[in-house]
């Protein structure tokens, strides 16, 4: 009886969003009389960072400090329409909608400032610190706050903008069956090293390494945060979790956390990540976003690593000790495969 080491690899070509009816997202932005901006969205931030990313995108496009932007995702009944937070579409779709809304709002902001300064709106620039001034003449300036107040109480203007992102609907070519449902793909490769005990069937993930290409990382720490958390979920789906262990037979399904197995803080493996930034032409400031692909490559990489370790190909998830032991038995013993690569 022995423990066998194995290495597996997987790569992903991951479509961002989907194209059912154009996959639209809307955003509305308006300024308050204190010169701060509210972005209204209907997609929900579940912790993935969408509020922070859209806040950065809005501030950058408006030309105001990030502290002066508030993103409100409170209510999909009263907010602008959105398809939702799924399909890894948040950064790309909502980010683009926010850019469109922020451009329109910025246009009104500069017009209102131009009226106060008695210049052409086209000659005005923002300094990103809450001021608007004439290009090349920083002393001829007005604050965003004073502009918002003038618009509200003197000029009778709403500094506001509407934005939508909609991708052209791609129909299926009747001759070739070809279609192009996506505008942006993200990519990743991941290597997993495991150890398989051929007596107990237990798999230990020793370490993982990955490279992710996801456009520009608009908030690099949050990208890392998603990649680490998603990889944990990938390990969990590969080796632990299932609501229906004997699918399609529903018996023995877990009913609560006592029975639903997940790896705990003691089961995590060292994980090194390289993020390659290749700004996407149609992404908000080049961003595509990580999302679901944080977990995706982990599953096949672990399945491949288990095969590499003991020669058992498990085709349904999760890869439980029981399935591995049955496979080893069917093969008449563990059959370690040739190992590639160093370390």
């Amino acid at each position: 009886m022995a423990r066998h080491r194995g290495r597996g690899m997987a790569s992903v070509n991951y479509p961002i969003g989907m194209n059912l009816g154009g996959d639209p997202s809307q955003a509305l932005i308006h300024s308050n009389p204190d010169g701060k901006f509210t972005v209204a969205l209907s997609a929900i931030d579940l912790g993935q960072g969408m509020k922070q990313v859209t806040r950065q995108v809005a501030a950058e496009t408006l030309g105001v400090p990030m502290e002066d932007v508030y993103v409100d995702t409170a209510d999909s009944d009263t907010g602008p329409h959105d398809m939702g937070s799924f399909a890894s579409r948040g950064t790309h779709r909502m980010g683009n909608a926010v850019i469109a809304a922020a451009r329109e709002a910025r246009g009104v902001l500069l017009e209102a400032a131009a009226e106060e300064l008695e210049v052409n709106a086209g000659d005005l620039v923002t300094d990103g610190r809450g001021n608007i001034h004439v290009k090349g003449a920083p002393s001829r300036s007005i604050t965003v706050k004073a502009t918002a107040q003038a618009a509200q109480f003197k000029q009778g203007k709403t500094i506001a903008g509407r934005g939508i992102f909609l991708i052209p609907l791609s129909t299926v070519d009747p001759q070739t069956g070809e279609m192009n449902p996506n505008t942006a793909f993200a990519h990743a490769s991941l290597v997993a090293d495991v150890e398989v005990d051929d007596e107990t069937g237990e798999v230990t993930v020793l370490k993982m390494a990955s490279a992710y290409e996801l456009g520009r990382a608009i908030n690099p720490k949050m990208v890392e945060q998603q990649l680490v958390g998603g990889a944990w979920m990938g390990i969990s789906h590969a080796l632990y979790e299932t609501p229906e262990p004997y699918y399609p037979d529903p018996s023995h399904g877990p009913r609560d956390f006592n029975e639903y197995l997940m790896p705990g803080p003691g089961d995590i493996a060292p994980y090194s990540i390289t993020v390659l930034e290749r700004p996407a032409p149609d992404g908000p400031f080049g961003g595509k976003g990580p999302g679901e692909m944080c977990a995706n490559p982990v599953l096949p990489a672990i399945a491949n690593a288990v095969y590499n370790a003991v020669g058992v190909r498990v085709n349904d998830l999760p890869i439980t000790p029981e399935k591995i032991l049955r496979g080893i038995k069917a093969n008449g013993g563990a059959r370690p495969q040739p190992r590639r690569g160093g370390g």
Partner: peptide
């Protein structure tokens, strides 16, 4: 790890 082993986190992967 022992100190937080009674707490489940679904998002972070615990490392952070």
């Amino acid at each position: 790890i022992d100190g937080i082993s009674g707490n489940i986190c679904r998002c972070t992967g615990y490392e952070a």
